[in-house]
Design a protein around this nucleic acid. Structure first.
Lengths: 228, 228
DNA sequence: CGGCGGCTTGATCGGTCTCAAGTACGGTGG
DNA sequence: CCACCGTACTTGAGACCGATCAAGCCGCCG
């Protein structure tokens, strides 16, 4: 559930919206985040929106990281995605969010009204195309995630590390923002299996593990080769 | 790879396109299938398009059923979706198809040029929104599929049967168009596990199995309850 | 220094896969 | 019409991978 805190800043967004709309029409619907949208700060594990909540806002990560997840009927948690700085999330097409969103650590996000984005697309075909492309990228991402879930534990962990290293783009060292439990719930494994598999990758000299959240990719080829 | 056969009918589509565009502008980009698009027939297991092939056409199932799949690096096959009469497939946003498509049995599909659909969206915001909504539904479907793959074998099979019964909408009896192998590759299980699980559902009186492709849902509640 | 949460490691259990027969069904040819 | 065959499906026995249960370890912060 949303705390009281965001309300003030959202009012600010709304008051600024008409101004920027009239002044210089926004063609790229996702560009609005840079023009409008006040930064909002969330604490660790704070909920940004809940499952089945009305999808009133769209979000862009400024700093920190966000996870979206669903709680399964048996109590497990399936993480749908991790969103890192620059990523946009919460843009469900239906009236309600299909997943819940939480800040992983302390996180700053920009917020805009969904209706502002959608109504823009009704007037501007280019903007509508942009929204389509965005959703298509999400579709691509979920397809990859689906394909991940039928692989072996080693393959899943290797894929995850490669994905993170590409998205965080810190050469060969990755500073993971999320816990082992988060990784496990993303990969559809248990925390023990994730931990064991990482240890195994260390013993195979594929990675180094100076600390649990700090990973050095020692042999990308070997990681990629696991998907043989 | 496409056979030579479709080329003739596609020429017919193209020649008819400008006419129908001028006469009565098509607002719904997916409606074009009913106005244009010649029926094409494929034999059992015939490829409709290949993985990584240029996405030149969009398809709508008239009769029969279609599967899309990817061959994994270890040789297994992961089915991404089953498309039944009325369903549209092949509308990838990128330049290439991400999955391969095959007719399951004998199947009839209508074909239109992707460029016709896309260019329509560039002129008509309503059409662009329609495309967005279509991709969003695909996204929803893949998310559900992803969630399916982290469940137990029983849950996966039960979900599959419920999904098929809703889509085929034949009250409580389902005539499956696909083989056990197809089901297994869709659910991320082996053919033996699918078979065993169905036998188990029979012994629990959740379903009847007059023949291997003919399924009677005897106790929907029990099937749903498996996702407890 | 003590305690707590996050992580790792070990031992055992269980569900699904693998390998291997056996069975039912549909089509084909005599 | 029946005998035969091939394919699809079912069933069984054992192996294996990841889950579960249970300690221990490490780093952090009071």
């Amino acid at each position: 559930m949303l705390t009281q805190v965001p309300i003030r800043s959202l009012a600010a967004i709304q008051s600024r919206k008409p101004t920027s709309d009239r002044a210089a029409p926004v063609r790229d619907p996702l560009e609005v985040f840079d023009l409008m949208g006040s930064p909002m700060t969330y604490g660790a594990n704070e909920e940004i929106y809940g499952e089945d909540e009305p999808a009133e806002f769209v979000y862009k990560v400024v700093s920190g990281a966000v996870r979206t997840y669903k709680t399964l009927t048996d109590g497990r948690r399936q993480i749908g995605a991790f969103y890192l700085p620059g990523d946009i999330f919460g843009l469900d097409v239906g009236k309600q969010h299909r997943f819940c969103a939480e800040a992983i650590g302390k996180a700053v996000v920009r917020i805009v009204r969904r209706s502002a984005v959608v109504s823009l697309a009704e007037r501007d075909c280019e903007a509508a195309r942009e929204l389509w492309t965005f959703t298509a990228r999400e579709l691509y991402r979920v397809q990859e995630h689906m394909l991940l879930l039928v692989k072996s534990a080693q393959q899943r962990v290797a894929c995850f590390l490669l994905e993170m290293s590409e998205r965080l783009a810190d050469a060969n060292t990755v500073e993971l923002p999320m816990s082992r439990q988060d990784i496990a719930d993303y990969l559809g494994l248990t925390i023990e299996t994730v931990s064991r598999t990482m240890s195994q990758l260390v013993s195979e000299s594929a990675i180094d593990l100076p600390s649990s959240r700090h990973i050095v990719l020692r042999n990308r080829g070997a990681l990629r080769h696991l998907n043989a």
